[in-house]
Nucleic acid binder design. Sequence first.
DNA 1: GTAAAAAATGAATAATTTTGCAAAAGAATT
DNA 2: AATTCTTTTGCAAAATTATTCATTTTTTAC
Lengths: 172, 172
Amino acid sequence: MNNFAKELHIYSKMKNRTNRQLAIKQIIASQGIHSQEELLAQLHAQGFDLTQATLSRDLKILKVAKVPNATGYVYVIPEGGNASQANDNNEIRFLADGFRDLNFSGNLAVMRTRPGYASSIASVLDNANPYEILGSIAGDDTILLVMREGITPNDLKKSLILIMPKLQEKIG
Amino acid sequence: MNNFAKELHIYSKMKNRTNRQLAIKQIIASQGIHSQEELLAQLHAQGFDLTQATLSRDLKILKVAKVPNATGYVYVIPEGGNASQANDNNEIRFLADGFRDLNFSGNLAVMRTRPGYASSIASVLDNANPYEILGSIAGDDTILLVMREGITPNDLKKSLILIMPKLQEKIG
DNA sequence: GTAAAAAATGAATAATTTTGCAAAAGAATT
DNA sequence: AATTCTTTTGCAAAATTATTCATTTTTTAC
């Protein structure tokens, strides 16, 4: 594969499902969104190509809630959810740098980290409380993740990327 | 007014808007509700007579959110909202007993309580953070509530009852 | 690589939710 | 008690959101 092809590949990766969902999170967190149509327009403006049907599915996956407020209805990213606002913050980006690798065996995932990082990363994951993870145990440089029955390695990866976007570069 | 009439009056009061909304809170808090139709059926079963349109409006007033979860969608009472789950608990019922009276002047409401109760009650109200109340200052037996512009005494009363149902007996 | 399997998506539709408007019910005023 | 004003509600329509089904795209296994 030549460089051009590689770049095309990287470019196309910018518009895949996970990226789109990250964009959705970001838009919802940074401004008041009142309907799926409105959000859809923003996504189109950012170059994402999707329909309302897909958006509805994304919002379900992201557990984005529709909440009434004084003026009308607003979509919100639930606290402590799969994809909380704490997402894009520096701490999480910093911690993601401590990630080494991720491997699977049955319904277990083993994440290895730079020494000392494991418990902090595990705490971020626990806090996000994704559906895919039943629980975790962290040592100094290793985290054991117990996956929910029926969840595939890919499902878990997607879920991790939603919590720590920087991981995409390393496990995407 | 004879006793019979009084009882009729009390009975009819059981089916007014505020009571209905309290029932909605209670149902949503105690079981998983997946659609307005489903909730409507429960309310009908409890003797409340309303249509889905009214229910939609009630849910908006109560700020009840529709949240996706693993299986589908669930209606939930937001934490710290107008009408949080902490609603029916003993502490709030206990505190409501400390309520004395409530009076209005312009956009201020003055609530008087038994000595020592004011700050606890104010804290419950602050925590519920209703739209109608901009803020409050509590002494030992008096709470000053600053009402949002455009809010009437009646609006405030309704809001207080949603936070502390026992108050209905005293200010309803 | 190619075939098979799985996942993601769009179009259209179904289901659900919200709202404008007029009527009914309830409060306040005289 | 009659009148006026305010609030609540239902109906029906509009708006919004979720899902079914067929197709395309991506991943996996060989």
